[in-house]
Structures are given as structure tokens and as C-alpha cells.
Simulated scan of single mutants.
Amino acid sequence: MTMPRTRSFMQVDVFSAQPYGGNPVAVVLDGTDLADEEMQRLARWTNLSETTFVLPPTAAEADYRLRIYTPGGELPFAGHPTLGSARAWLEGGGTPQHADRIVQECAAGLVTVRRGDGSLSFAGPPRVREGALDDAYLDQIVAAFGITRERVLAHQWVDNGPGWAVVQLATAQDVLALEPDLSLIPTAMVGAIGAHPEGSSHHFEMRTFAPGAGVPEDPACGSMNAGVGQWLTAIGGAPSAYRVSQGTRLGRAASIEITADPDGTVWVSGATTVCIRGSITA
């Protein structure tokens, strides 16, 4: 156990142009000398989907190293914590090695974050698992979602670290109507996506459920959207640039922009707003 001391702390709202409409992340800007169990205890206490700890990098190319904790455990990578932590690091006086980008080191490797007008974007890391779900797991998911397999248009592993799988339903309304029984999939990390009607401000509605990480439903999920974006743009299931709404059932208004470069790199973009600045004793 370390001797508690005062550390800089921020809470950042991610993926909403309107503060308090997206997904918050707690950022401890100096996690130096905190033990794993101390980080985990703090993450349980904040009770947010993720709490992050900024550390000195070990890779020469990186601007900082990030550890990411849910209430249930550590993640090798997560999307909205990546953008929120980058915003907090910049606001806390961090200076990147390159003016146009930040390089984050995390357990999944190096992640590039681009700086744009009013938003940040991260490059989706490679998926560690892809391909169709096996029949047994798909049966568990549809049972938990209270739907039949016939209503699933497609399904895929889109795991870039947290363990994500996704099912595609016909419409955004189908996604919003889900009333999942997560007790049937207590260790799952799974999402559902469906198309909004033509002419809508967003192309898709997304919901993500992470009982395996201690988060029943995530208000906005960058890592899931990164993996889904890599999958859908590669198979022609979505245009090279599209927008996703998320958090609707939770009273949020998250907006996530996906852009696929010609080389296949998928960028996940969104607004980031520091809502709380101060210090924490840890």
C-alpha cells in the first residue's frame, strides 16, 4: 500500500457536444506508485464504466502510458477512456511529441489519437478476435435479449481487447426495444446495432452491455464502435463515414463518428469536455 497523497484528477464527458450527455471517465493524472489493487479499489469507488491512471511511458514513441479499470477489472484498451484521458492530459499541461497527434501506450499497444477542431479521434487497434460467433454463444445472446435468431441479420466477434461481440438487428428501434436479462450472460461483453431510417441524423443506433466488466449498459462505447466500424466498412455494410447514436435508453445523447481511411484504418471521433477539475487523495 502506498501512502495516500494528493493527485490531479479530472472527469471528462466523452462523445457528446452537450456536456453531461455522453459517457464520463474519471482520470487520475498521476498514477505513479499506485498498486494494482489500489487502482481497482478507486475504480470501484467512482463506479463509472472506466477510471484511468496516467503514467510515464515505457515506449519512446508514446506520450504517456494509460491503465484502464472498470469496476470489475482492468482492460487492455477502451475507446471513450482513451479520448477522455487524452483530453485530460492535454488540459493538465501535457505536450505531445507531435503537434497533430498524441500516442497513448496501453496494454493493447500504442494507440494514435488525432487532434481535430473540437474533437479527438483514435485509430481503432487491430482486432484480436473476429469472425462469426459460434452457435452456442449466439443462442445465449438471443435468449438474453429475448429475441429469436431470425431477427439477427449478422453477428461478429469485434474484439480489440475488452472481448466484444456484436449482433446486427434490422432497425434502430429493434435495438432500443431490447430488455436484456444479463443474468443469462453474466460474463458477456456484447453489443447490438441497428439502422436508423434514411434521412436520420445518425446512421445506426448502438447499445453495449458489459456485465463481464461490471457495467450493465455503457452509455457510449468507443472500442465497440471501433471494432464494429472495422467490420462493417470492410464488408460494405456501412459507408466509409457514418454516425452512431448511443445512450438513448439511459437518457444520454452520445454521438460517435466513424471514418474509414482507404488503407483500412478506422477512426473513432467525438466531442470531449472536462466537467470536473480538482484533486483526489489516493
Rank of each mutant, 00 (worst) to 15 (best):
M3P: 03
M3S: 12
R5A: 13
S16L: 08
A17I: 02
G21R: 09
N23H: 05
P24C: 04
A26T: 09
A26D: 10
D33T: 15
D33M: 10
L34I: 13
L34K: 07
D36W: 15
E37M: 12
E38A: 13
A43M: 08
T46R: 10
S49V: 01
S49C: 08
V54R: 07
T58Q: 14
A59N: 11
A60Q: 11
A60D: 11
Y64V: 04
R67E: 08
I68W: 09
Y69E: 02
P71I: 06
G72S: 08
E74H: 12
E74V: 07
F77H: 01
H80N: 10
T82I: 06
L83Y: 03
S85W: 04
S85I: 10
A88F: 07
W89N: 11
L90C: 06
G94D: 09
G94S: 12
T95W: 03
P96K: 05
H98M: 08
H98E: 14
H98S: 14
Q104D: 04
E105P: 06
C106G: 03
A108R: 10
A108F: 01
G109H: 01
G109A: 07
D117E: 15
G118A: 06
L120E: 05
S121M: 06
F122V: 01
A123P: 00
A123K: 07
G124P: 02
G131L: 06
A132Y: 00
L133Q: 02
D134Q: 12
Y137A: 01
D139V: 03
D139A: 15
D139M: 02
I141P: 04
I141N: 03
V142C: 07
A143G: 09
A144D: 05
A144V: 13
G146H: 00
T148P: 07
R149C: 02
Q156H: 06
W157L: 03
G163M: 02
A165W: 03
V166Y: 01
Q168E: 15
A170S: 13
A170E: 13
Q173H: 10
V175L: 09
L178H: 09
D181M: 12
P186W: 05
M189K: 14
V190G: 00
A195Y: 04
H196Q: 14
H196V: 00
P197A: 03
E205C: 07
E205N: 11
M206P: 01
T208Y: 14
A210Q: 07
P216L: 12
D218L: 09
P219K: 08
A220G: 11
C221Y: 00
G222R: 08
M224N: 02
M224Q: 05
N225T: 03
Q230P: 01
T233Y: 00
I235E: 05
G237N: 12
S240C: 10
S240T: 11
S240G: 13
A241S: 14
Q246P: 01
R249T: 15
R249M: 12
G251M: 06
G251F: 05
S255M: 10
I256R: 13
E257D: 15
I258K: 05
I258Q: 10
T259I: 12
A260C: 12
D261S: 11
D261A: 13
T265E: 11
T265V: 05
V268M: 06
G270Y: 05
T272K: 07
T272I: 02
S279W: 00
